[in-house]
Computed example of a mutant assay.
Amino acid sequence: MDERTWIVDAANVIGARPDGWWRDRAGAALRLHQRLSELWLPEHRRCELYPRASELDPDTSHQGAHHRAPPAQLVVVLEGVARAGVPAGPDPTIARLVVVHAVGSGDDAVVDQIHRQVGPVLVVTADRELRRRVAATGAASVGPGWLWALLDDARSR
């Protein structure tokens, strides 16, 4: 298991792929949630799916993460209309996958979640200002392309 908590800026990750998400933001949030839940496949299947995933994480490899396994916890921050796609709270089947509904700014909710975590945190976002705020907390960040590559690699095997 990757000992970090991953926090996903869902709006930013969803917006990184022009797949029509703007026509159904709640549906796009649900599809992302479903893709993220695939990280918790049974152990034997996960090893088949993620043998090269560490190559996708050059910015944080110094932290010793291998990404052959899911994170200790994965927090997905949803804002606006996308909140209707997935209920807030832990996933009923995968308690380590938690959805947070931002009351105001999604960026503020991401930073708030960083402060709530114990241990190392990795934030997935391409938002420059948010990445600056993340760095100020001592957390690491990667872009949405990193996460999509990880999820796509899992699907292609």
Rank of each mutant, 00 (worst) to 15 (best):
T60I: 14
V81Y: 14
A95Q: 00
G104D: 15
P71C: 13
A29F: 02
R128S: 09
D57W: 12
A84G: 05
Q73S: 09
V134C: 10
R45I: 05
R25M: 02
A139N: 03
G80D: 12
S141W: 01
A109R: 07
L41F: 10
W40G: 01
V75S: 06
R157L: 07
A16E: 09
T137D: 05
D112E: 13
V75P: 00
V118C: 04
V118L: 06
W6F: 10
L150G: 02
E3Q: 12
S105L: 08
R4F: 08
L147I: 00
R155H: 07
H67M: 07
V13E: 07
E48K: 08
D59P: 06
V134D: 13
V98T: 09
W40P: 00
Q117F: 10
A140M: 09
R17L: 08
G138Q: 12
E43L: 15
L74T: 03
R131I: 02
V142N: 06
V13Y: 09
V124C: 06
V142P: 11
A26R: 08
Q113I: 03
V13C: 11
D24G: 06
R133P: 01
A65V: 06
V121D: 05
W21C: 03
E38M: 09
H115Y: 13
V86S: 10
E43I: 13
A16M: 14
V123F: 01
D19P: 00
A140D: 05
V77H: 10
A29P: 06
A10K: 12
